[in-house]
Computed example of a mutant assay.
Amino acid sequence: MDFDVATDDRLTTVDVTDRVAETLPADCVEGVCTVFVRHTTAALVVQENEPRLRGDLESFLSGLVPDEGHAHDELDGNADAHLRATLLGPSATVPIEDGALALGRWQSIFLVECDGPRTRQVSVTVTS
């Protein structure tokens, strides 16, 4: 199952937890859910949905990877986005228990946009 996520900023986070949960098959009681973003300048993470922490994540990534000064920028000016997405990774795996995502109390699934604004395709695969 795939769904699209529209982003509105160059570097931002979008909570996709509910969208992922909606894709779970009704007959799946236990299993594994793998969420994958089909882009090299976006990532997925499991983290707390707290606005200040989300801002901290964006600031951390900006501080860790400078916006400019990379060889790939000569091609299309987005090397920073590729490097930030590489640090985080394109997927997240979450267990399914009792027909629901078995996330911890404070955990949510986020798409991390590193080269927006764009529309991103997210793929969800469930194995039961």
Rank of each mutant, 00 (worst) to 15 (best):
H82D: 11
T86E: 01
D67N: 10
V94H: 00
L111N: 05
D76I: 11
T86Y: 04
A85E: 01
W106I: 14
L87D: 07
D98R: 13
D76K: 02
F110D: 03
V94I: 15
P66C: 09
D98Y: 09
G104W: 06
V65P: 00
R105P: 05
W106Q: 11
L87V: 13
I96V: 15
R105F: 07
N78M: 11
D67L: 04
L83Y: 09
I96S: 05
L88E: 00
N78S: 06
Q107P: 04
L101S: 06
G99E: 06
H70T: 12
G89V: 09
Q107G: 06
E97R: 12
G99V: 01
T93A: 12
G99W: 04
A79L: 07
L111F: 05
A85R: 01
H82Q: 07
D76L: 09
A85H: 00
E68D: 14
V94W: 03
L88K: 00
R105E: 14
Q107T: 04
I109V: 15
L111E: 00
D67H: 14
L75G: 06
I109N: 00
D67T: 10
L101D: 01
L103S: 08
P90K: 02
H72C: 08
A79F: 00
T93W: 12
A71C: 10
A102G: 13
A100K: 12
L101W: 02
L75N: 09
G89E: 12
A92Y: 01
Q107S: 08
G69W: 09
A81V: 10
V65K: 03
V65H: 01
G104Y: 06
A79M: 12
I109K: 02
T93D: 12
H82G: 02
P90E: 14
F110N: 04
D73T: 12
N78H: 08
L75C: 11
T93V: 15
D73G: 10
W106A: 12
